[in-house]
Amino acid sequence: MKKYFLFGAYLILSLVIGEFHPFSRLPMYNSFPNYAYIFYLSDENERLIPYLKYFDYSKNASYIAFFFYSICTQHNYPYGTDQEDPDHLEKTGKEIMDIILKNEDTTPFDFDTLKLYRKNYYIHNNQIRYTDYLMYEKAISR
């Protein structure tokens, strides 16, 4: 019985308490909706700006996605399957851009404008399709 006590206790407490560190229901990939958002950066010439070539690890592509979902949840903006309100996307984009550029020395950057896009992959007739949406752009002072 001792072999299973902590197993059972942690299982039950996590199910009851939910997302409250050190408890969690570990809900990673618990559903597969028909959309996948990726957020990427480009410059004024639509040249890709890879996150890790210009910024540190705390501003990588998967973290930017975390920021998007956290901001939408905080403001109660509905999200997913391309349903976002353009105004909400712009506001969310601005907040994400602020996070990206926070504490950054922009003098070494080799671009004048930074654009944040949301790419949405989805499946239609067993084929992969995507849409691109410009959420926000900002002039870079160097």
Binding site: A36, I38, Y40, N60, A61, S62, Y121
Partner: peptide, 11 residues
């Protein structure tokens, strides 16, 4: 695809 895209947009 999303996770491979993350790697692409990172690097």
């Amino acid at each position: 695809l999303k996770n491979y895209c993350y790697a692409y947009y990172d690097t």
